[in-house]
Computed example of a mutant assay.
Amino acid sequence: MTAPIIDIELSAPVNLRDLGGIPIEGGVLREGLALRADDLSVITDGDARLLVDNGLAAVIDLRTADEAALTGRGPLANYAVAYHHLPLMESIRAGMPDGGTPVIEHVAMGEMYARMVETAAPQLASALGIIALAPGATAFHCAAGRDRTGVLAAALLLALGAGDDAIVADYARTHSNMAAILQRLRPTMGALMARLGFDLDAMTAVTFSDEPMDISMLTMLARLRERHGDALAPLRAAGLSNGTITRLRQRALA
């Protein structure tokens, strides 16, 4: 059966932000090191050019192979920007709890994040190495820029010695952007979800609940420490070295 053709709508990212300004060990994270974002494969050429002009040197794509195949690299492929595909899940369905029921509860999402750190530790360790060595800014993204992107942002901030309050606050900033994010990713993720038998709006219902979004990140951090002591232990076991952490901290404070 041939997959339906979708219209790729190019648009400005709505959940793009520089992590600069976040308190870390020894000071404040400088701007121009790490940016987190919603899908960068469907940005306009003007947005791509602006990112490059502002120092973008590398992109880390955390999406699944199915997602990446749907849109490719997008306009940034036309620029001298290194591209690294490091999917944190084998498939979108793999991100669902047992039985394939969509996650619509914050604690369950935090549990999923903790499992993601454990199962995708090599990819996360590689991503931190890329950020440490890139000759300019590194941007990392998934589709919405919340879940997989939030996990990598948390790992980076943990490596930089940020406190839990700062990590959770950065994660929770996405909440106010979710309506715009959902609208932006509907043409692509909506089509992919439909192929898997899921409804995108139903899956994101948790986004608009009254429950604080920060519960997910607090749950992830708690579960990782309960199981490993150090929340970064899975990444260290997967190859994250003290040298990489030192390099990250040097670059973050430079």
Rank of each mutant, 00 (worst) to 15 (best):
243 G>C: 08
171 Y>R: 04
197 G>W: 15
231 A>C: 07
153 A>K: 11
194 A>M: 12
99 G>T: 14
78 N>C: 07
61 D>S: 07
71 T>Q: 09
183 Q>G: 13
38 D>P: 04
182 L>R: 00
118 E>M: 01
34 A>N: 04
248 L>R: 12
176 S>M: 15
140 F>P: 02
113 Y>T: 02
175 H>Q: 15
193 M>A: 15
242 N>D: 15
27 G>W: 07
28 V>Y: 02
202 A>E: 14
21 G>N: 08
93 R>M: 13
107 V>C: 03
57 A>P: 06
182 L>I: 05
70 L>H: 10
135 P>W: 03
115 R>N: 08
86 L>G: 08
64 T>V: 10
179 A>Y: 08
128 L>H: 04
39 D>S: 09
155 A>P: 12
214 D>I: 11
44 T>C: 10
85 H>W: 02
77 A>T: 14
74 G>Y: 15
94 A>Y: 14
20 G>L: 06
219 T>P: 05
71 T>P: 06
200 L>W: 15
3 A>L: 14
67 E>I: 02
123 Q>P: 00
24 I>G: 06
37 A>L: 04
244 T>R: 00
233 A>G: 00
119 T>F: 03
12 A>S: 13
198 F>D: 10
184 R>C: 10
180 A>S: 08
233 A>N: 02
105 E>G: 05
184 R>L: 09
112 M>A: 15
160 L>V: 13
245 I>S: 05
135 P>C: 06
153 A>N: 04
245 I>G: 12
206 V>L: 06
10 L>A: 12
109 M>D: 06
117 V>P: 03
230 D>N: 05
248 L>K: 01
113 Y>W: 14
55 G>I: 06
14 V>P: 11
107 V>P: 01
90 E>G: 12
142 C>Q: 08
198 F>I: 07
172 A>Y: 09
56 L>I: 11
150 G>R: 02
91 S>K: 08
41 S>D: 06
8 I>C: 08
194 A>I: 00
88 L>H: 08
227 R>E: 04
171 Y>T: 12
39 D>R: 03
125 A>N: 01
36 R>I: 12
36 R>K: 01
176 S>W: 08
41 S>I: 01
254 A>T: 10
208 F>A: 11
134 A>T: 09
93 R>C: 12
129 G>V: 00
240 L>G: 02
31 E>S: 15
231 A>L: 03
163 G>R: 05
123 Q>T: 00
129 G>A: 05
7 D>N: 11
14 V>T: 05
39 D>L: 13
88 L>P: 14
176 S>V: 14
32 G>V: 05
66 D>V: 14
176 S>T: 12
144 A>P: 05
226 E>K: 13
187 P>C: 07
158 L>D: 00
108 A>S: 14
174 T>G: 09
189 M>L: 13
11 S>R: 08
6 I>K: 00
94 A>T: 13
215 I>D: 11
38 D>E: 10
140 F>W: 15
246 T>P: 04
175 H>E: 14
208 F>Y: 15
170 D>A: 06
89 M>F: 15
202 A>P: 08
18 D>C: 13
191 A>V: 04
184 R>H: 10
